[in-house]
Write a protein that binds this DNA or RNA. Structure first.
Lengths: 334, 334
DNA sequence: GGGACCGCTTAAATCGTTTCAATATGAGCG
DNA sequence: CGCTCATATTGAAACGATTTAAGCGGTCCC
């Protein structure tokens, strides 16, 4: 219980507390011999500075926070890895939090980050958190939105062009001769969904033939895909779509699982395109054609931007939009 | 920059700082009318308590830290979800850190946790960190080791019986008539690997026929699996194993990918068993037979144990060992 | 009517570190 | 030898919250 503190180290090394602090934080101000004595004392006593006291005095917290939307989705863990790698370079710790799409948990973590006075936060908003983000920013925390653009566009963001992605997927399906395309995934209030689905619809329209059937879903996981697959199976064979555009790869894998289990042939009966190109897409029962998002790159870009904003809080808001890329595999006959 | 603090709230509400603090932390000590005034002032000024000051004064940090070994492996994210769910019930924040198998990063995060005076830490050690864990514990941080048992066994742990798992996998392969079994994965210094491989060897020995070929690997990811697959392909057909026991599902998926790409039939030519039974195992090109580990349950158990140790630091060291379970699918002819 | 007691509020001390002005030490130089 | 200047070190104040003992009115009861 009796915590070893600078005072103890100072006494042990025969110097004053101020010098111990300097040895740790401004080594150039301390003579080498004194420094060695102090470091030896620290080692011997097992002193570990109390970060709360340091932060209180300094008024800043070095750490960066990141709120991950869905830790079970490899897409987001890839983003996180890009963030980590970039932060490791500048020696700043990353604290991860997982909202799991829950608005409450997202709010709770944002509040926690606010109390902690973090210097920067990366967030993929799950709910209406504009007010909280504003308050965070007003208190001096840099904010960059990842994989989204907030409505008001008042925060810098890094995202991937979902309209282009939706177009790539749809055009490809049309190119391989499909006409009745089911879009599996939701909810539509997610900008992701809205844009991908919107692009699909527009693409079909421009093409002059074909149609989009939206099979909505409450979430974007494998289970939702299975449910979507069942919906497909329940349709009379005549009206059944000949292609599926899944909102992401998890959904696609769920759809695939249900379809193959029921004996529907992919891609012969139904072609299938996923989104994200997670590592497991290539290893699926039928390797998935997918729209690849540069996830790691997005993490890197967002972190770079965040560090910029931290060092220059007045930096202009900037929206970086990366481009997705179609990866053709067997599930569309590739 | 001018931070809103209790002093300001107090002035605004016409009370003293102490009363503001009480309103927040000991509401029963404050009259309802005063409390309402204070809450209104807090709301109006947008006051957010400085957690560093609170923690400094209180001497404790509510948060729990968790060091995840490999965030890209769904197995570990499942564990994390179990942890999260349990902590959410008691309202403690979880800060995640990702060691990515790196000893240095693991140390760095443990040091950070020590500086933060967290009340508890869950860790799956990647390197030699016994000394750091001891220091953490000695300073009052509760520690539970997840998915490992530390050498000295001086920390409570929750793990899954790897010997049983190795036995289940191997026995199954023998049961379906395979004799030359390649164990793909490494390094062997990982207790996981050691036990699974050891059990496989022993199982073969007891069975009286068959053999284990160890294809070592430096890591346990899909890429390592691909490399293992290539090694298999390079073997002369006559000496090529008729079964693969992969150290985990990621490796198994890599092996599967390489083999199917090269036209080797699974399970006909080579049967394949994975480990962990991650969600993607069932959705693989050939659905994977796998040894299921109760990942979420492990997270829940570890967290429960941790909370026990926090509330009673003198609690006895306890090693909880959960049992794995074989899930048979197509990759072994199921 | 006086004392005990009760509930609420206050003021000041405190947590452990960093910072800063002030002081001490020592070197260099005429 | 005395002075200046640079470097090294000190000691006390400060960071923003919580806690604690003390204070203040008011009520209750004999």
């Amino acid at each position: 219980m009796p915590e070893v503190q600078v005072r103890d180290v100072a006494r042990h090394a025969g110097v004053s507390p101020g010098t111990v602090s300097n040895a740790l934080n401004h080594p150039e101000k301390v003579s080498p011999t004194t420094r060695d004595k102090i470091l030896a004392a620290i080692e011997e006593l097992g002193f570990v500075p109390n970060i709360a006291a340091r932060q209180l005095r300094r008024g800043t917290n070095e750490s960066i926070g990141m709120i991950v939307l869905d830790i079970a989705n490899p897409f987001f863990t890839s983003v996180a890895q890009g963030v980590e790698a970039t932060l490791a370079e500048v020696g700043r710790p990353l604290v991860l939090a997982h909202s799991g799409q829950s608005h409450e948990r997202e709010q709770a973590y944002l509040d926690l980050f606010a109390e902690q006075r973090l210097s920067g936060v990366l967030v993929t908003p799950a709910g209406q958190v504009l007010d909280r983000l504003r308050r965070l920013r007003d208190r001096g925390t840099a904010i960059v939105v990842v994989d989204r653009k907030t409505g008001a566009r008042e925060f810098s963001s890094v995202s991937v062009d979902d309209t282009l992605g939706g177009r790539l997927a749809t055009q490809h399906l049309l190119d391989v001769g499909r006409r009745r395309i089911a879009f599996v995934g939701g909810p539509e209030r997610l900008s992701q969904i809205k844009h991908r689905l919107g692009a699909a619809r527009q693409c079909v329209e421009e093409h002059g033939s074909g149609e989009i059937v939206h099979l909505d879903a409450a979430s974007l996981d494998v289970e939702a895909g299975r449910a979507g697959g069942l919906q497909l199976l329940e349709m009379p064979a005549a009206r059944r779509p000949d292609a599926v555009f899944a909102a992401n790869d998890l959904v696609a894998l769920g759809v695939l699982q249900t379809l193959t289990l029921a004996g529907v042939r992919v891609p012969d009966d139904i072609a299938l395109v996923g989104y994200d190109d997670i590592e497991f897409a290539a290893a699926a029962a039928i390797p998935l054609t997918s729209v690849r998002q540069p996830a790691t790159e997005m993490g890197v870009a967002a972190t770079g931007r965040l560090l910029d904003v931290i060092s220059d809080p007045g930096a202009a808001v900037e929206h970086i939009v990366l481009s997705p890329q179609l990866v053709v595999r067997r599930s569309t006959g590739g």
